[in-house]
Write a protein that binds this DNA or RNA. Sequence first.
RNA 1: GGCGCCGUGGCCGAGAGGCUGAGGCACGGGUCUGCAAAACCCGAUACACCGGUUCGAUUCCGGUCGGCGCCU
Length: 338
Amino acid sequence: MSEGPSVPPADLVVALFGPTGVGKTAIACHVAKELGTRVVSCDSMQLYRGFAVLTNQPRAQETLGVSQELVGVADSHVEWSAVEYARRARPLLEEDLSRTGSAVIAGGTGLYLRTALAPLSAPEPGDPELRRFLEERAVQEGAATLHQELASLDPEAADAIHPGNTRRLVRALEVLMSAPERRWSGRRDLWAPDYYHHTLLVGLSMDRASLYRWVEHRAQMMFDGGAVEEVRAHRARAAASAPVGGEGESRGRRGVERAIGYREIGDFLDGEISADEAVTRMAAATRKYVRRQDTWMRRLQGAVIIDTSDRAAEESASLILAEARRTRVVSPADGKDT
RNA sequence: GGCGCCGUGGCCGAGAGGCUGAGGCACGGGUCUGCAAAACCCGAUACACCGGUUCGAUUCCGGUCGGCGCCU
């Protein structure tokens, strides 16, 4: 635990990942406060303005005065992406590093975290019309046709993408068709432990039972605490800006409309399901989400896992800070100690 | 007390004498390269109990227990 005190501290990014409910926000704030820096949020839904409750954005009382970046900054009708997120997040992290020598990023969106911390070969999006065309074909001709087509362009890619996964098929074809010289397959850098900066990756975990208890509670709190109003307001805005009436449903859900609870609350507002049913479904969807996040966390290379089950936020934070101090004395060059 | 109906895995719910033991939800695992709180894939657990008929029963017959309905 105690290290040579005279070694100059190296710049360090502390990255916190974990399922909803483990207490990422509180812990991140403690860590950031201690390091004299701010928290860059890494959450694909908390990005959106006007959904503080639905997306469970950090409340003022829990931030300890630490400023939260990339929370509530996006218009709810704009659709973000991992790469877009990285474009915004990276400069913030760099600013913090050069100003304080540390940066803290925390959130539950695995892919976003990855793009913010490490280079990823993510091709530019293809022509939106091409995408629409492909999506339409998937409906008309079936995904199997697209899969066969992909197989002829890039067999390895076809092999890696399940024939039932229309979304990925469309994406792969979209890239290949707009830049035939490149391959979709062959990239192996998603999980590679290569980072832009010296990075301490922390995975926060908690036993499922506690997490699920919290999830249920949260669903009810959300529903009663204003999420219904947020959805109602957003729908009203969307309806007002829609070109023609009565066709809002056909364009599909995007951006914040994909947040857990948006659909359920919408169904409730339409009188299709009861309030209780809405809350039940929200909780179920959140539990699934927690499982997926756990899966992602298990894949993380070299992450330090901290179990927050029986720990106060301060305690978890100090464990992380201790780890950070330990890490710092190792130079970025040989920072691969696992 | 009598008559009728029912009893399928955590829940809902099909089904048939032996064949992959429908499906949905929930749960668990996994994939993941500009939509990721998304999209997709995979999985375990059953036929209330006891006898009988049969080459073979979860499916047919009898009884027990349990539930529901009706009747005296």
